[in-house]
Design a protein around this nucleic acid. Structure first.
Lengths: 334, 334
DNA sequence: ATTATAATTGCATACGTATACAATGTGATA
DNA sequence: TATCACATTGTATACGTATGCAATTATAAT
């Protein structure tokens, strides 16, 4: 491997000078710069960023810890995060969090000496909180989900989000309303279920316990829950899915079994992922009002925190207002 | 930052011994191991992988260079690649290739001293070929697309793929068949257009030049092409889209303008991305026969190449057989 | 008890770059 | 010409870990 020493030798200067040229230092004579650059080209020299990182204690690398990309919501965040990071000169290491990973994954991330961590995959009482808080040096931010004890986060007002969905289907005349969500260990599902209950009780509607479905967000688990709802003697007329990804799977199942949406059953999601606006889908959902997504807001804050140490004192705590995107999967009760 | 030296001092041993414990060396006495491990825990020591990489000349990191994740095909590959890489102990740096980036992105990747490169984003005459071939040390493999001059690749038999689509719509009675693809600088689009022409001429069908649409795969560009096809005085009855992503956008456009698919117009894609089997979509497409995807095959080969140097002599050149997945977006001509 | 052998450990150095500091060269000024 | 300021370059070292080799200690064999 050709190093700056090789370049130095060929150019007839010291390695320090090569390093200065590499970093665009102004205190190198013009023709020395040229000499060095010629040598670099001749040897096809590429600076070793690993070595540079070791010295500067800066890797220009961020860690993104996300759910697997089955949920398009996380795909869209990932896309935007990588893009914005690149624009600011940061590479992104992508990690998928698996339930049951514990802090192993985080240890690995921290060993990699990333400059910052952005994550969606955190549980409401995640023990990783302690680890992250104990690092004064490395900024982190969560998006979508948050930890009970605070931290830096960008989230949706989850309670309000489901509330909007329920208000909407109630306004269409629905009274038998089901909810389908995921593990309450995630702040999103926790808040969304809470919002559901609040709205239901505000409207003074009676809900059967069996209409509240908790899934593990796997396709199988969602379809199983759908099956149970459909086979319920007292079938609900509307399903409030806690995420678009869940709603999409419900929709698939319902159509597969000959149900019409919304004629037979109304369906709503949350997140406003891209595919929901497709004319084959037209899913009624709840999104945020901003142009920017949570992932974008989060990564921008993170980079600010990395580059301006004084910003790290005040935590980033952003809760975004939801708004209903009414489309074609919800209709009046007949 | 707490280093192995700090641990050594606390444990009353040398840094070398700490390093040996770290690497599970068998030649350290049991109680020394315990002493060191206690010290590590007490200091909350995390080995610096950057420093380790510098010494071992191995980063345990792979670079994935892919298209932006608007195309679900690349999302699915990315998901699988990251997962398999993690299983083998590799981190993945994700880079999005932008047209016009030239070799700048690759220089950056190479500076990062990754252990291997997996990429879909390569053009058929990409100058990056020279750069990659000149590195004897770092293995690489492309998937989906390939370079004209060989290299290591895992691809679909693109010519055959469009051929299957055309055969299918012809068998349904279609004679006015349009094609919609992307830049011929990508081997995929090149092969798929070729396959289209071959099948058309095999069936002795006459095609209007204006039915061959070249897009830049952006949503806008695809919709513009759709518009032109629809407004053509001699409207085609079937559209062969070169990718599912293109087909999905076509479908969106057609439905938005009141066309029924397949009653008014038949539509096919290629890639068999997950969403195509959704009951709201049911897109007829062409996929591969295997359980494993191209991305998976490619990453597995890449890791083999990294870990077994002797494998690097014979290139990985895999071309997979396509098969038709008939669904509901194609129908008999009326 | 003495030696031979094996098991542990420490010392010194390398990886490739950046940078504080020292050293040298350059030109201007008196 | 001597002096000084400034521009340019080189020397030495640090970053944190791994590892070849030498040194030490423990164990076994005589």
């Amino acid at each position: 491997m050709v190093s700056s020493h090789d370049v130095a030798k060929l150019a007839g200067v010291s390695q320090a000078t090569v390093s200065r040229v590499l970093n665009g230092s102004t205190l190198v004579k013009k023709d020395t710069v040229e000499k060095v650059e010629r040598a670099m080209k001749e040897l096809n020299f590429r600076p070793n960023l690993i070595a540079r990182s070791l010295v500067k204690n800066k890797t220009n690398t961020l860690a993104l810890i996300t759910e697997h990309l089955h949920n398009p919501f996380y795909v869209e965040s990932t896309r935007r995060i990588v893009k914005i990071a690149a624009k600011h000169g940061y590479n992104v290491l992508v990690f998928f969090h698996q339930i049951g990973d514990g802090t192993r994954l985080y240890e690995q991330v921290l060993s990699n000496k990333v400059d910052g961590i952005i994550m969606s995959s955190i549980l409401i009482d995640d023990p990783i909180y302690q680890v992250l808080e104990s690092l004064q040096d490395i900024p982190y931010v969560t998006f979508n989900r948050k930890h009970r004890l605070g931290m830096n986060y960008v989230e949706l007002d989850n309670v309000h989000a489901t509330s909007l969905s329920v208000d909407h289907v109630v306004s269409l005349g629905h009274k038998k309303i089901a909810y389908m969500g995921g593990s309450l260990l995630a702040s999103t599902f926790y808040g969304r279920l809470q919002g559901f209950y609040q709205a239901i009780s505000r409207h003074k509607i009676h809900i059967k316990d069996s209409w509240i479905k908790m899934t593990d967000t796997s396709s199988m688990s969602i379809k199983e829950a759908c099956k149970e709802l459909i086979e319920d003697a007292d079938q609900p007329t509307a399903i409030i899915a806690a995420t678009d990804a869940i709603a999409m799977t419900c929709l698939d199942y319902l159509l597969a079994y000959g149900y019409r949406v919304p004629e037979d059953i109304s369906l709503t999601g949350i997140d406003n992922i891209d595919i929901t606006s497709h004319h084959s889908i037209q899913l009624t959902t709840v999104g945020i009002k901003l142009e920017e997504s949570m992932g974008e807001l989060a990564i921008e804050r993170l980079i600010e925190m990395i580059e301006q140490e004084d910003l790290r004192t005040s935590p980033v705590q952003i809760t975004l207002e939801p708004c209903l995107m009414q489309r074609k999967t919800t209709g009046h009760i007949e």
